[in-house]
Design a protein around this nucleic acid. Structure first.
Lengths: 328, 328
DNA sequence: TTGTATGCGTTATCAC
DNA sequence: GTGATAACGCATACAA
């Protein structure tokens, strides 16, 4: 019983093994508690069947839901996921990517905080990088994202449909085109309706940022009657600020949010959101990363969907009890 | 310039290299774009400098905050983290652990859904497993957790201090001793105060579960005036159910929660919580996993801390704006 | 101080 | 259908 035969059995190929020999090998594996060594296999085969996931903060529900779906999609393909969310702590993004490559990942999924991420290290190493959460294609790389601008227009139109004429915007510092596109969508809707842009508050893409935005919004001379908030995180903080100030929601202040994380469903009032199809995007991302043909360098854009709940002023809930609870 | 010398330079040892040779090597590395191969190194050294993180659901903010801190602690030690949260989808927990081991991780961090996780595969492979989120020691393994029972007693005492006499409990299906201990803590506080246990609702450890618990709670003949909820997730759902029913919080229903995730700070009303020191536990976990001496098989228990906000009936906030916003 | 040579565990080529 | 053997890239014992 040579090591070659063991390999044939373990990998079901590339050569045939007599059924009887096969049985003996399997039995020996069982008895000796043999486990193939992943490092040796990776060394020999040249692939580690591991991908890297680089995000800024897995604590952000949008990214944690994204990560969940990515790990799921990867597992379906027999891939493991190494993640890092300490980009800012460890050093510049490119360093983090480089460390991933040194780890021997076969590819990198990157949700960059930069508008033009530095991907030279990956290019030099010949490691494919797929960009998550993008509004635009990136030459030489595949990417996925959603229709930020169009979706935002629809969201704001909904607010306009409620009769609001002074609609503010809570936006963020980072995000590049994903942010500016959402801002443009807000502008588009207002322009179409012949409305002036309401106040704009720019803050961090966090709950704290949203809270701060709310506080500042209420200090304005002319407070808007409704706001479009670019992320669920900020919306949660924004709602909190409104409550602290004693406002009645959504009567005193209507809110429509972008993202559609689970958290948005349980705020008070429940947030009306443009929901990004995170799960679909995640699965597409993992699949695209696996392809290595030249024409896989595409930007895959997904449609978001309006989920009407109560923060916009609608008195009913369309999706409150829709998914069976998972145990934790 | 032999491969050995390159190795000495790259690893700064174990033998000395003449400064001049060293320079030449570094220059060659630069010019040729040489990157050490992680698989070959792992094969030779017998360690991959990679750890596995097995959790049920990274979408749960408690676990995503835990994961964040774990990755941070691991990165500080030069370790990579492979995570999986598809335990239930992929198969039984032991299968997931086994796959991690096949991946060649040096150790596993496990937040088990089981009270007595099956760790035979890890034992057989000689891979250390550290259990997260535990109430009790596990023979042969290190573990970390918090003082679930004592912390719960303090939380409920706070509610009693507000004058509540009928205090309900929202608990969960899973969690083993971490759950029963929290239940006991609730009982302890009530018994000490000479109060009868209020109604108990058992549901999933999710927002949906909390919502359902709230709905059921309000259908009882004798509705409690306050509840102790065993997780932030459930609290968020519970609050939502209260709002839907038109209750005034915290006057009509006071709530104290367990966990203390960031989300708890921005609910309405902001949740008074027993906060688990997740970051400290995560760092301790990574460090303990690294030690291989026999006496490292300890249970490291951390104290939780009462964070008073508004859901309990306190009219002030102690910690609302405490942390600088991080960019996302 | 540097070069040579071996082995880590696997896979694949080749001979049998 | 099976066994011996080389090679993946690195780290180290040993020779020089």
């Amino acid at each position: 019983m040579s090591s070659a035969v063991v390999s044939y059995v373990v990998n079901s190929g590339p050569r045939n093994v007599a059924p009887e020999t096969r049985e003996r090998v399997l039995q020996a594996i069982e008895e000796l508690g043999y486990r193939p060594n992943a490092s040796a296999r990776a060394l020999k085969r040249g692939v580690s069947e591991t991908i890297g996931l680089v995000i800024s903060d897995i604590t952000n529900p949008y990214f944690s839901e994204y990560s969940h779906a990515i790990e799921e999609a990867a597992a379906e393909r027999g891939l493991s996921v190494i993640f890092t969310n300490s980009a800012l702590a460890v050093g510049p993004e490119r360093e983090v990517i480089y460390k991933m490559i040194l780890r021997g990942v076969d590819g990198v999924l990157l949700a960059s905080t930069l508008d033009e991420p530095d991907l030279d290290v990956a290019r030099a190493a010949g490691i494919p990088v797929l960009l998550l959460d993008r509004a635009r294609p990136v030459v030489g790389h595949a990417s996925v994202g959603s229709n930020f601008r169009e979706a935002s227009r629809i969201a704001v139109e909904h607010l306009i449909g409620h009769g609001h004429r002074r609609i503010g915007l809570v936006t963020g510092f980072t995000g590049g085109a994903t942010t500016t596109d959402r801002e443009e969508g807000w502008r588009d809707a207002l322009a179409e309706a012949g409305l002036e842009p309401g106040p704009i508050i720019r803050t961090h893409f966090t709950r704290e940022g949203g809270f701060e935005a709310g506080t500042r919004m209420l200090q304005l001379e002319l407070t808007p009657t409704a706001v479009y908030v670019l992320s669920d995180q900020q919306s949660i903080g924004y709602l909190n600020a409104m409550h602290q100030a004693g406002l009645q929601l959504p009567d005193d202040m209507a809110v429509v949010s972008f993202d559609g994380t689970t958290e948005s469903k349980f705020s008070w009032p429940p947030l009306t959101v443009m929901r990004q199809p995170v799960r679909e995007m995640a699965h597409a991302a993992v699949e695209l990363l696996g392809k290595r043909d030249a024409d896989s360098h595409v930007h895959h854009c997904f449609d978001s969907q309006l989920v009407v709940r109560q923060s916009c002023g609608c008195g009913f809930i369309t999706d409150h009890v829709d998914s069976p609870a998972a145990s934790a």
